[in-house]
Structure formats: C-alpha cells, structure tokens
Design a protein around this nucleic acid. Structure first.
Lengths: 352, 352
DNA sequence: TTGTATGCGTTATCAT
DNA sequence: ATGATAACGCATACAA
C-alpha cells in the first residue's frame, strides 16, 4: 500500500509502469469517478466539455478499466466458454473461427476448452462458469459436462452446435443430417450406382443414426433394397474408415460406391481402395461428409457434403450472446443449409 | 437487492438456484468470513473443530469462491493466454495440449487465442492481459503482439515457444533447428543420396534460415558442394510444398531426395512426386519435419524429425507459471531434444 | 449534468 | 485461533 502511494502522482500524472485506475483519471480530470465511468459507458449522459476532458486524460494515462472489477460489479464477465471434444480435429476449428468472429464483434472473450471428452477436464471448465469467469457455454460435443445443471433456473446460458442432447430445451444450431445424407446418396444413385456401401459413424454419437437414416431413405426412395451387410460402423477416424471400407470391399459382391459418415473416414476408405488396387473413381466412388480442408488436397480430391461451419459457429455464438443478454431463446432450433461439393472421387457407373 | 433477500435463507440454508457466497457460509457456520477464507486457503491456521464445521457448510451449500472477486483482491487471475497464429495447424495443437496439462496442474485457466497473425486480433487478446483477466502470455508465433511492452518492468510475463524474437530477453522453449535439420539430411546422405533438394520455409519465419543452415551444414560436412538450384522456398503449406517440389523435380538433373522444412510441405512433395509418376521411396526419398499426425497416415508414411511438442508446451507453461509466481527467469533458453522417425518415405540410394 | 455513497465477493491487516 | 474492517476497481441509485 505504501508503495502505491509513492508511485502515484508527481504533479497529476501517473507514473509509467503503474496502471491507472478510474480514481487516477477522475482526480486528474477533476471530476468524480462516477463521471469517468459514465463517460466511458454512456457518453451521451455527459456534457461535451467534460467528455472531452475525461477522454483526454484517459488517453494520456492509457487507462483501461479493470475487467475483473467491472465483471464483479456487473455480474457479467463478457466471456464465454467453448467446449470442444478434440480440437486437433479440423472439423471443429472452422466452427470456432466463426464463433470468435461473432464474439469479438460484441466484445466477448472466447475461452476455448479442449476436453478430449474427459469428464475431469469438462468439470474443470465448468468451474470457470461457476466461478463467474464466463457467462455462457457453447457445446460441440452433444453432451452436458458433468456437474452442469441441465434445466431449471440454475442452468447457465448454453447453446449446442452440430450435436444436441435429446430431451433438453437448449437452443441448437445444426444441419439436417438425414436430408444431407440422403442428398449425398441420391447423387451416387443418380450417377448410376446401385450397390452403395455405408461407412457409418460410431453408435455412441447421435450423428451416426441420423446419417444412416438418410442413406437408407435415399435407397428406399428408388426401391433399392436395404442390405445390412453394406453398412459397417467406424469411428470417424482415418483408421476406422480404412478398416470398415476394407470389410466392405472384401465382400463377395462389393459395393461400387461408398458413402462415408465423415471426411476423415472417407480418407480411410480412399486408402482401403488403394490397398486393394482399386482406382477411385473408376472402380469405386467415394463420398464424404463435412468438407474439411483435407478433402480438397486428398488424392483424388473428395466429393463431400459441405457444412457451413463458420456460419454455424457464428450463429451459435449469436444465439448464446443474445441469451446471455436476456432474450428467451430456449427452444430454438436453427437448421443451416448444406451443399454437395463434387470433386474427383465420384464418377458415373453403368448398372450391369 | 430485495429479491436476493427473499431468496436466501429459510432456516439457515441457501435456496437452490441462488449461489452461496462466503457470507452465507460464514453465517451458517457461525464464524466470520475471514475464518471461512482461511479455512479454504490455509487450513492449518484454523482449529480442527472450526475447520470441520466450515467445510461441512461449504459442502452442503456448494459454495465456490467467486474467482473474479478473488482475482480483484489478489491481483492474480490464475489464467494465462496462449496465442496461436493458426490453430487449424496440427503442429500447434499438440503443443497446446501439453500446455493445458501443466496449467491445470497449477489450477491455471488457459485462454487460447487464435490470431491468424492478424494484428487486430492480437491486440484484442492483449487487452485481456491489460484487463487483468490473465497473468501471462505464451507466444507461438515468434513475435510480440502489437501494443505489448517488449521490455522494462511493464512487460508482462511472457514465454516464447518454438520461435523467438531475436534481441529480446524473453524466456524461450525450442529445439535446435540447425542440428535437427543436419541430422535429417545426414540420414539421407548415409542412405547414399548425394543430390539432395531442400523445400525450404518462407523467408519471413526465423525457422527457415535455421533449417536451411542445417541442410547446408550436413552437405558441407561430407564435401558435397552446395547448389542453390536445389533449394526452393515454399511456405509450410501442402500447396507450396507441391509447387516447390515440382520445380525441383523438373530440374535437368533432379534430386534423388528431398528434405522438406516441415511435414505439410513434405506432403506436397509426396504429391508432386506422384504427379510426375515417381515412386516414393524407390525413385525419390522424402523427409519432413515436425511429425504431425498426418505423417503417420500419409502414403507412404513420412520419415520425419519429431519435435516433442507436448513436452515443449508443458515446459513453456511451467516456465511461464513460475515467472508469474515471482521467479526471475528472464534469459532462460530451453532446448528440447528431437528424434528422427524413420518411416516409409526414405530408402537407400546407390550413387551412380 | 454531476457528485456521493454504497456494494459486488473476496482477501489481508490488524486487533483481540 | 478468530473477528472487525478495510481495501481491490468499478458501476449505479440517489441526491443535488
């Protein structure tokens, strides 16, 4: 304390190195702290003259309000937490980019948490929320962290992205997975394919049955009988996709086209084809889902379903911020449009 | 205010939904707030009996200290900022993982900022620091954000990782790039290669000349004359690597092996080889740098120099936290060991 | 339009 | 060993 006294104030200025507080500014500008606060937060309440004088001092002292003190007072941290299950996964990075964009537009800080689906880590990020260091939560994992009040007034502002938790009134930004999958498979059908395999997602993820449903829907729409042998579950990884595709290609009557539940497993399928000496797309068509960066540089480049990831992220952040700021958006369900991106991994097939 | 009064306290308990404060705990446990605070921070100063009683109430109320208030008082946010130039880049994710591990061990929150090398975004993260919402800065970009005091007492705790800013007394955690590059190239030489090309990094990054120096060093050690025509600068991307490698392979007397400044450009080189109908490693050996995940699943899998990324991240976080907590580690320069990972993209060559 | 005074939830200082 | 009490830096209700 004593030290502070010494540092401050030779003749009305603040010693460099010491941080100016609102009191410093007030004193130097010869107004009350209330006026300084008002000048910054609601300039219209302050006279032209005073405002000028205060702003001048703010400039010269380099004064920046202490966000902690402000948050304590206003009970708003101006920060949100984004919980990503695996941020090494390129699927998420683009979403987060969109989120950051929207957040910074409203001056919210983004605290990104990489949980690796580890309950312990989820809990540790939840703490930030309970600590009041963040105002809301963006969840990309389709599940609530342990220790998070699921409903009732104690539930903090939350928005789900891409995957949701069924039976939970949390706003959700997503795509229509069945419809998107159906579109992809129909494209293969339109190319002439009749025997179409599906490298599915892991059973634990809600996305898997949804995309599988779209696959099945597309077949049924054109009277192609559904053959369970043509569906092999993988786990959204390269390795899993490779193994699953291998099983499909080893079938006595192998598929001529593969619909993969995501791009990464589609990469695996591409490799499986090469392993077997099959050419893509001449001998086998492959279609993915997501349109991650890798899809463009793979060999051949991957035909896939593009999710508007950045827009989804921005939209989700928008909903979250509005929720934090008081709007009641509980049941919101926002469905974003997808797009089929045709590249080199698919080609037409003459039915035999 | 009035509302709060109503919510609290029927017969000594806190209404669910309302958050317990230290006052609630104190009142219910029949002690002062000071005692509650002590019980939590320095239990040894409190009598057995009191401690038990307080802890009981803490449990039953679910009391958690408000981190903001604490930070305001103690002037320590228990949070650090990690600035990543591009978190879509797999090179960084593993480093950040290591950082998170070390941070959570000391109960620090990690605020990850994705700057995309945009000064505006850098500035916005710097604000968090000046706002007192974070205690220190971890920089992976080899440059200070604009508006960051580079030296003097006003400089916040900072640690550089992987790349540093020459002429700056900031602690640094890194590898020995020239030595690592030399090791890689020597490996190629030992395999019998004599004509070795270098897909270099962009001139703007300090890593580029360092790895180039190692390349040159290895050649000179065995009297292979340095040929500038065998060095083409790329930009650490797939596309750049592909173009650079193409130029090298189009040379009248093309190299039999390529040392690429990072894995991503090595992937591009692999593709360039395939574009030309060259087999790897039979016709061309390729070696990368970093050992990102992709290196393992590429076709063929990539021989590369592994950086201990997670360890580097953890170490850097360790240094940062210790700096924050008062140790004077200014000039520190920590060099981590690398390792050559031999996979399928390299093979021996009979000199002609 | 401006100032005074109080409180946000802690921790630290000083008594007791 | 414990309790009063004063900051921490800001925002706001209320008074002027």
């Amino acid at each position: 304390m004593r030290q502070e006294e010494e540092i401050r104030e030779a003749d009305g200025l603040v010693e460099p190195g010491a941080r100016a507080t609102i009191d410093d500014v007030a004193r130097i500008a010869n107004v009350s702290t209330a006026t300084v606060s008002r000048t910054l937060a609601r300039p219209e309440l302050v006279s032209e003259e005073t405002r000028r004088r205060v702003m001048e001092v703010v400039e010269s002292t380099g004064y920046r309000p202490n966000a902690l003190a402000r948050a304590l007072r206003t009970r708003a941290a101006q920060a949100v937490i984004v919980l990503v299950p695996d941020f090494g996964n390129p699927f998420y990075t683009e979403i987060v980019r969109g989120m950051e964009r929207r957040a910074s537009a409203s001056d919210y800080a983004v605290l990104m948490g990489n949980t690796e689906s580890d309950p312990e880590r989820e809990r540790s990020y939840m703490r930030l929320l309970l600590d009041r260091r963040a105002d809301g939560l963006l969840l990309l994992s389709g599940r609530l962290p342990e220790g998070c009040p699921a409903d009732g007034p104690a539930r903090p502002p939350i928005v789900f992205v891409s995957e949701d938790l069924p039976g939970c009134e949390v706003p959700l930004v997503r795509i229509d997975n069945p419809a998107a999958a159906e579109m992809a498979v129909r494209y293969l059908i339109d190319l002439g394919h009749r025997r179409i395999g599906h490298v599915a997602g892991p059973p634990g993820r809600i996305l898997s049955p949804e995309r599988h449903a779209g696959y099945r829907q597309a077949l049924e729409a054109v009277q192609i009988p559904y053959d369970p042998a043509l569906v092999v579950a993988a786990d959204f990884t390269f390795k899993g996709g490779r193994a699953a595709a291998r099983r499909l290609l080893d079938l006595p009557e192998p598929p001529t086209a593969l619909f993969c539940a995501n791009d990464e497993s589609a990469m695996g399928a591409l490799r499986a084809a090469r392993d077997k000496g099959l050419r893509v797309p001449e001998d086998l068509s492959v279609i993915g889902f997501d349109d991650i960066q890798l899809a463009e540089i793979s060999d051949p480049p991957l035909t896939t379903v593009r999710q508007p990831r950045a827009e989804m992220g921005a939209k989700a952040m928008d909903v979250l911020i509005r929720t934090i700021e008081g709007e009641a958006l509980s049941g919101l369900d926002i469905v974003m449009p997808v797009e089929l991106v045709v590249r080199g991994s698919t080609s037409s097939w003459r039915p035999r």
